[in-house]
């Protein structure tokens, strides 16, 4: 059986049998890998906490017919302990790994890997607010997956912005001609915050009022929900102060999805 070695971040784990776990990992070079960690639930396991979610490790696998098996693991980034010590960070990190799990497959996804590791590191160090870190991560992860939003120019016809309406179904801001009835309002402050989060311009996200953050989070949650087919379950369990509900997006009348614009 072939042996291979890769860096990986642990996305989630499932119990298997008496003392084993199936670990879902996002690797640097091999995309998403599901592998068995034998005996990891035993108190004296050689893996210890190295294969807990949010941990980054250098892992040796040997290939199996259906699942690979983890034979060795060395810690590269220990983000689990600081994250789990703060409930808000824990719920935020869980939403990130759930998104990463949904956005990646077995194809190599190095950019997704680096983005997730960077986001978990930033979260564990408390560099920015958990809500903003999550919003930025979701926007950038969706962009890498091919669903980059446009918050400046019209996402439908490309007319240069800024525009005052947003429609997640068409990919972001929409001009007055393209905006269907009931399109959500996109005020200047929320648009600037979303653009900054998408670009990772953290200096522009400081001192943003809480209401603006909530509106931006609502748009990000709606955008993620639309493109991932179903909502991220972890978003429903974010800590009380973190609003990631579609209801946070102001709407005048019930939205309708516009027909694709005919191209000449």
């Amino acid at each position: 059986m072939a042996i291979y070695r890769d860096e990986a971040v642990v996305l989630r784990t499932h119990k298997l049998g008496e003392a084993d776990r199936i670990c879902t990992l996002l690797t640097r070079n091999n995309g998403k890998v599901r592998a068995v960690a034998k005996g990891v639930r035993k108190v004296g396991s050689k893996f210890g906490a190295r294969l807990e979610p949010f941990m980054v490790a250098d892992i040796q696998f040997y290939e199996g017919r259906t699942l690979d098996t983890i034979s060795q693991a060395e810690t590269l980034g220990s983000y689990g302990a600081p994250i789990v010590a703060d409930y808000a960070l824990y719920t935020t990190a869980t939403a990130m790994v759930e998104a990463a799990d949904r956005l990646t497959e077995t194809d190599p996804a190095q950019r997704q890997y680096l983005l997730l590791v960077g986001a978990l590191r930033s979260l564990s160090r408390g560099e920015h607010s958990p809500t903003l870190t999550l919003d930025s991560y979701l926007l950038r992860a969706l962009s890498i997956a091919g669903w980059a939003p446009s918050f400046q120019d019209c996402a439908r016809c490309g007319r240069p912005g800024p525009h005052a309406r947003v429609m997640v179904q068409v990919g972001g801001a929409v001009c007055s001609d393209c905006a269907p009835q009931g399109a959500a309002i996109l005020d200047d402050a929320t648009r600037e915050l979303l653009i900054a989060l998408l670009a990772g311009a953290w200096d522009l996200t400081e001192d943003v009022p809480e209401q603006v953050q909530k509106r931006a989070s609502g748009i990000v949650a709606a955008y993620a929900q639309w493109h991932l087919d179903r909502s991220l379950r972890s978003l429903d369990h974010l800590d009380g102060s973190q609003a990631h509900t579609v209801a946070a997006v102001p709407q005048s009348t019930p939205p309708s999805v516009p027909e694709p614009k005919a191209t000449a």
Partner: peptide, 14 residues
Amino acid sequence: LPVGGDLEYADEIT
């Protein structure tokens, strides 16, 4: 540390 184990095999968090 688990009783009966070797220190060198303990992970960093434990």
